[in-house]
Simulated scan of single mutants.
Amino acid sequence: MGTDIKPPTSFWIVAVFALFWSILEIYFSSFEIDLLEENLTVEEFDNMQSLPVWYIAVFMIALFSEIIGIFMLFIRQRIAAVFFAISLITLLFIEFYWLFIIDIKKTSVVFSVIIPLVVIAVAAFLYVYSKRAARKGWLK
């Protein structure tokens, strides 16, 4: 087999950041319903509460694939990129559904634009970074 290339300190910083980000996502997701209930009209909140079961399933796939991808980063496995790709694809689907089908645009700029863009940007960064790490030999 080839030599084991030791990843730089920045690799570990990104891995810790990813773990912290994932914990933040879980934390804020647990309070999102309460926050929305306070800021939405009754009709908008009822519409949001009637999310289909498949939406919740896709959200869980996104969350768990990101967590598994982070774990794979820490143990330096190439498959991390696959899990981050799954997470990115499912998050894109979720955020577009959230924005255009649920029509959250009327609620606030934070919920409708900023949060979805940040979530997608971080997911894309983790995917690209894991691909780069695999290409450089930091992942086995």
Rank of each mutant, 00 (worst) to 15 (best):
G2N: 14
D4G: 02
P7A: 14
F11C: 11
W12Q: 12
V14T: 11
V16D: 03
F17V: 00
W21N: 03
W21E: 04
I23Y: 04
I23V: 15
E25C: 15
I26C: 15
Y27G: 09
S29W: 03
F31E: 12
F31M: 07
E32I: 04
E32P: 00
D34W: 03
E38P: 00
E38T: 02
N39W: 06
L40A: 03
L40Y: 03
L40F: 11
V42W: 00
E43C: 01
F45C: 02
F45M: 08
S50T: 07
P52F: 04
V53K: 14
Y55F: 13
Y55H: 07
A57T: 14
M60H: 14
I61E: 10
I61K: 11
A62D: 09
S65A: 15
E66K: 10
I68V: 15
I70K: 00
M72H: 12
M72K: 13
F74W: 15
I75W: 01
R76V: 06
A80Q: 13
A80M: 15
A81K: 14
F83K: 11
S87A: 15
I89H: 06
I89E: 12
T90D: 05
L91M: 14
L92F: 09
F93T: 14
I94E: 05
I94K: 08
E95L: 05
Y97E: 06
W98N: 11
I102V: 09
D103N: 11
K106I: 04
T107R: 09
S108P: 00
F111T: 02
I115S: 00
I115G: 01
L117N: 13
L117S: 11
L117E: 06
V119E: 09
I120G: 06
I120V: 12
A123K: 04
A123M: 05
A123P: 02
F125C: 00
F125D: 06
F125S: 05
L126M: 15
S130P: 13
S130D: 10
K131Y: 07
K131S: 06
K131N: 13
A133Y: 05
A133N: 11
G137M: 13
W138L: 10
W138M: 12
